[in-house]
Design a protein around this nucleic acid. Structure first.
Length: 333
DNA sequence: AAAGTACTCAACCGCTCTGAA
DNA sequence: CTTCAGAGCGGTTGAGTACTT
């Protein structure tokens, strides 16, 4: 979207803790950017605090660093929405690393941790809203947006969510991670540790079903990754991928999903046959893009369930276990 | 056309980590 | 070993914009 440059911000300046100097906050001006860039040209992307101590800018070192990392760094994809491939990478890496945005960002050329974080946050909000909202009526009615494709397919997302929720729900009863076949069948995602963040992980495990397709991971983009450690650890090769197909079928609890319902999903009849095929761009949630039939899918088992039936399951999730021991060599791959 | 809602994004805050003194 | 300062990271906020009703 086009934001008004230098739009009004909520803060402008304040006295710093030490008392005297005014610390400027809020949006950066072009002049400030130029000063910051000049500092980086001469000193490199470091010594942030010296920018203020030398009187170059009335900004904190943290603020300067953030501005550089998020906006001024070269080769950033500013204002460019996440591609389907990027979305898929984020989803899969989030499932594996958790909310390690800086680390995840090292796999995405031109993306910052803030970008990834915002992307994920937006996605989570949407998830939460969908989970709480009543199921939209399944119909063949066209989208209300006058033929324009919505930014995401509500119907597909909803179906996806309830599928994921079913997995979650079963897990809450069985107390066995998530009782999720797929989780156990995805070694490269280490889903055995899926309970680390139950809510996210359950869904991520589901979404990573798409991730059975090969990832083309990028090495740290430009050496200016926001986390130098992460940059060093960024692999130059994809995950150690098992041969396809990975799974028998993802975590559909039979209690909730009968074969007919499964067959009604885009996955079962359209995705499975292509597991041996070359990588395919599949936007997250967006099976409708790759599989048009999904919009016309028949009602599945979840459509007949009360929309809030999974809320309790979410509330009953066990606390996350302690994080798995980190590898001694710092290389998860 | 207006109002309400959802989404995006920049930037701040607080915490943790790390290295130097 | 302890302390401290700087850097980095994740969470959060809120303004502006887009979309929907």
């Amino acid at each position: 979207m086009a934001r008004a440059p230098g739009g009004v911000r909520r803060r402008s300046a304040r006295r710093d803790a030490a008392g005297g100097e005014v610390v400027r906050k809020g949006p950066w001006t072009a002049e400030e950017d130029e000063v910051l860039l000049q500092h980086v040209r001469t000193h490199g992307p470091k010594d942030w605090s010296s920018i203020r101590s030398k009187g170059l800018l009335p900004r904190t070192g943290k603020s300067c660093r953030l501005r550089w990392v998020n906006k001024l760094r070269p080769n950033l994809k500013s204002g460019c929405k996440f591609s389907a491939e990027e979305e898929r990478v984020v989803i899969e890496l989030q499932a594996q690393f958790g909310n390690k945005w800086a680390r995840i960002a090292t796999y995405l050329q031109g993306r910052t941790d803030n970008d990834v974080k915002n992307f994920w946050s937006t996605r989570q909000k949407r998830l939460a809203r969908l989970l709480r909202a009543p199921l939209p009526a399944r119909s063949n009615k066209q989208s209300s947006s006058k033929g324009k494709a919505p930014s995401s397919s509500l119907e597909s997302e909803t179906a996806t969510f309830h599928q994921g929720s079913a997995c979650l729900d079963q897990a809450s009863f069985e107390g066995n991670s998530f009782g999720c076949q797929y989780c156990e069948a995805a070694p490269f995602m280490e889903y055995q540790n899926v309970a680390r963040a139950p809510y996210d992980q359950a869904f991520s495990g589901f979404f990573a079903f798409e991730g059975a397709l090969p990832l083309q991971l990028l090495p740290a983009a430009d050496g200016e990754a926001s986390s130098s450690n992460a940059a060093q650890m960024a692999p130059t090769l994809p995950f150690d991928q098992p041969p396809y197909p990975l799974i028998d079928f993802p975590c559909w609890p039979e209690r909730y999903v009968d074969a007919g319902a499964i067959n009604g999903l885009a996955y079962s009849q359209e995705l499975l046959p292509m597991v041996q095929s070359p990588p395919m761009m599949m936007p997250f949630f967006g099976m409708e893009c790759a599989h048009g039939a999904v919009k016309d899918e028949p009602r599945n088992a979840f459509d007949d369930l009360p929309p809030n039936m999974f809320d309790d399951a979410l509330d009953q999730l066990p606390p996350p276990p302690p994080p798995p021991p980190s590898p001694s060599n710092g290389d998860e791959f």
